[in-house]
Write a protein that binds this DNA or RNA. Structure first.
Lengths: 240, 240
DNA sequence: TCAAAAGTGTTCTTATTACACCCATGG
DNA sequence: CCATGGGTGTAATAAGAACACTTTTGA
């Protein structure tokens, strides 16, 4: 029993990289720490896991307390467990990322109190703890997942234009895509429902609106279909 | 401080799916449990993480104690943290997989005492705890990784034949590959050194031996090269 | 009538698939 | 001389890349 006591004095937490997409830009919801350690620095939202709480449930809870959102796409990435990663003791953290529609995000008491704010992925400074490392790992996994599963739609409103979808992929993959090739590829998958509606009130030709056809996707997968968007090769600038 | 005490009474462990390749078959090193709970059942090798030990170090330690091997390919997969996954208390486990050359595996005191044995991946029964779930997650990640990074070589001896390499990929990906297409693809990557040596003592035409050119791989990657072996599409048997 | 973004096809190139026979060795 | 696995090329098809102009709307 004394040996058991040697071990049962650690804690674990979850940290959640909450991605959103707005104005063509991939964003992450960060909170400003109000207490030591790292007081005043930006950090990933997270919390200790209760002794009787599954880790996935803890990640959902953190997300809901902050955003008011439930039933959101949530995926575990990996654990971070360096001995000295937390100043107050041995705390392993399990990293998750989630995909939310920013338009549905509501200021909750928790997010108000914790000073939550969306930050562009391309403009993240030094974060508390090892949160930069965690954020990078989650971003890498998002890049990977978005190419092999149709999860990008989780970041868009239910009705979206092909250009919005393309910009989303460009933001996530940090690359530029060819408009015609992108449309050809995505439409050839037959995963989109053409809603026969158009944008309104835009100062240019209005775009058609589409919705993601989840039922069809499930069907195709069970028939052996494999979603895949290749990373477009970067043109190699020839050396002079 | 009392709130802290609520949390700091959990433990975490690492579990390691140790893959090996032998006789054309992908294998996993399991140990037979000598103590309760799950006494007598096969389980993944694992251990509690010491309070002053990084989780990656704990995974390496488990591997070395059992196999005598160091500096082996080791990759974290994810954490498993259901509340009731361990009968004696709240224990989260971090799953790793590692790739070893079975020929280098030595019986250590630990592996002898813990009755370690290689099991074919296609013949794994019910394991202790949630270890079937962990094994599946690690196998899936191996399948993924082996297609996008040249880690398969970690499972082969330093000198290998193209057929051995092909059989390795077939075992890991659980598919069949076309001999000529496989050779064309792998040789076109320029990652293999032709050793100008042949097998000896085989009752058929001896195969050429190759070695993986790690330096060249690093070089190619820094030039933007991306290792990729596509899963060969299964022929769809037309319905009558 | 201008600005702004939507929408659309073809050609070229590269990658993937399918497929069958001769070769070298040991027993 | 036989059994066993080693080694090789080509043609057909599919996927990806490059690329420019016309359309529709609101201001």
């Amino acid at each position: 029993m004394s040996e058991v006591n040697t071990f049962f004095k650690s804690a674990f937490s979850v940290d959640n990289v909450i991605f959103g997409f707005d104005e063509g830009d991939l964003k992450v919801l960060l909170i400003k720490r109000g207490t030591s350690p790292f007081k005043g620095m930006w950090a990933l939202p997270g919390d200790l896991v209760y002794p009787n709480e599954d880790i996935d449930a803890a990640a959902s809870r953190v997300l809901e307390e902050l955003t008011g959102l439930r039933n959101v796409y949530l995926e575990q990435v990996k654990a971070f467990g360096k001995v000295d990663r937390h100043p107050i003791g041995r705390v392993i953290t399990i990293a998750y990322y989630s995909l939310v529609r920013i338009s549905k995000y509501k200021i909750t008491p928790a997010s108000f109190a914790r000073q939550a704010q969306w930050h562009s992925i391309s403009d993240i400074g030094d974060l508390a703890f090892d949160h930069n490392e965690i954020l990078n790992a989650c971003f890498e996994q998002l890049k990977q997942s978005v190419r092999t599963r149709p999860i990008g739609f989780e970041l868009l409103p239910p009705k979206f234009t092909l250009t919005q979808l393309q910009h989303l992929y460009e933001a996530v993959l940090e690359t530029e895509l060819d408009k015609r090739n992108f449309r050809k590829k995505i439409l050839s998958m037959n995963l989109l429902i053409d809603l026969n509606e158009s944008q309104e009130g835009v100062a240019h030709r209005p775009a058609r609106l589409y919705a993601f056809d989840r039922a069809r996707y499930e069907q195709l997968v069970s028939d052996g279909f494999h979603f895949e968007l290749k990373e477009s090769r970067r043109k190699l600038t020839p050396a002079i």
